[in-house]
Design a protein around this nucleic acid. Sequence first.
RNA 1: GCUUCCUUAGCUCAGCCGGUUAGAGCAUCUGACUGUUAAUCAGAGGGUCCCUGGUUCGAGCCCAGGAGGGAGCGCCA
Length: 519
Amino acid sequence: MSAANNVGRTVQRFHSLRSSQAKAYGTSAKACDSSTKAYGTFLPLPSYTPLPPQVMSLKRSTVKELLASQDLDREVLVKGWVRSRRGNKYVQFIIVNDGSTIHTIQAVAAAENFPEETLKDVGNGAAVAIRGTLVASQGKGQAVEIQATEVIVLGAADAEAYPLQKKATSLEHLRDIAHLRPRTNTFGAVLRIRHALAFAVHQYFNDHGFYYVHTPIITGSDAEGAGQMFRVTTLSADKPPLAEDGSVDYTQDFFGKQTNLTVSGQLEGELAAMALGSIYTFGPTFRAENSNTARHLAEFWMIEPEVAFNELEENMDLAEDFLQSLVKYALANCADDLAFLNEQYDKELLARLHSVADNAFQRLTYTEAVEILKSAKQKFEFPVDWGTDLQSEHERYLVEKHFKKPVILTNYPKEIKAFYMKLDDDGRTVRAMDVLFPGIGEIIGGSQREEDYTKLTTRMAEMNVPAHDLDWYLDTRRFGTAPHAGFGLGFERLVLFVTGMSNIRDVIPFPRYPKNAAF
RNA sequence: GCUUCCUUAGCUCAGCCGGUUAGAGCAUCUGACUGUUAAUCAGAGGGUCCCUGGUUCGAGCCCAGGAGGGAGCGCCA
């Protein structure tokens, strides 16, 4: 068949072109010493090679579209990365994933059209374009497959050097190659779910009349009190200008004062809420704490709704409905990815997500929780005493053993909470609320805010918060103050819960934590 | 920052009481096989036993220091 010969020649031509480029890449990649992580080396770009017209004239279909298609026996074009190639000298099977779904599509290449040599570079990790006919599969295991008429290697992957293999790789090792881990089933699933949850956040708030407010990333106030901050400066690190008393002269800095990366958008969020009514923020947040746990990041994304006229009860209602809506959205829209994670990592995942989505959270006060913990038969490493903050083991007991569902704890002693929380009538506790999730711990921290100017400034004085730096914040209490409430949801902790992953460093593409800012 | 465990082939891991030339599975390469499903079967190549120093006739194994990683705790979201 001349058609078959033409096909073969086309493949050969592109194969030889691409393979010389791949060789150049391979050599450069090996020259790049992995121990020094010198990823900054720039490699020459391959010269542009136009795809043949019969391929260009076709619109690319995603794997997701093709797998769901009922419209068979038509010509299709798919582009993606090879997960596996197997077969014999008569027939070859090329397994392709393009990120549109966790599933792969199988392309079948008959040997008469594709001599072994032409498929040499079609290996694990290679980027390919495959043109062919979408047909019902002859084999078991998949409904449809592509009978390939053309296979083009867009970019080869040296099989000896490619770090991802057709087998399980530990999550710890994948953290070392985070630039490639999105190509794995696990991280594909996690990143698609992460996207779905981010989208669901905006959809929920938009549907409920909230406005998305962008609060500053660089902040001039160091009084937010949510943790150690990263300094932002353009001053010389070696020889900063000094004031007469020997301290660094920040009046010469870019902003004319000391500035930091934000640890919370809450204070600015409150300003917006006291005008727009219902607002939320959703942005990056930075904490320079030396936290080495599976639940903390130095750079994470936080969602902070703030609602004027809401009190503590309404704040809890919002938190509960919001969380349940997000979980339901993931269940409805990420079924394939969740099924994979349920199978591979956590057989209880789907059951737990349904349980959280369908059952009311347990609400109780800090004081009631202390009573339960004191009468618990379980031995705790740390004693429980009214007035001290609860330890992780105490929170876990309440959520995982005693109630076996999410818990909202309220009305903590004022001494262990932030200055802006509204004081209860007894003067001992504040209208704080922490939402505790199984396996995660604190997923939300929030409160009704102190709207009384005198009480607020009194608390600030007691806790050594400089009122002078926050006069802009206090103005909301001076002019037209009103009850209001809000909370902060750690986005990665939500993704952690929904995916069933166990380390927060595995639910953000490029995690930032002490001693690590790779990629 | 504290506690604790770990570091052996590209990956996952064995390695006995300190004793000859450090092993397995997978991956890679070669060959076989007419529809495979992480294909299968046969063969081959592949090692700075994390680094530095010490003890010993002899160290992957014991000791000290360092580096990196995991888990738990604290800080919190």
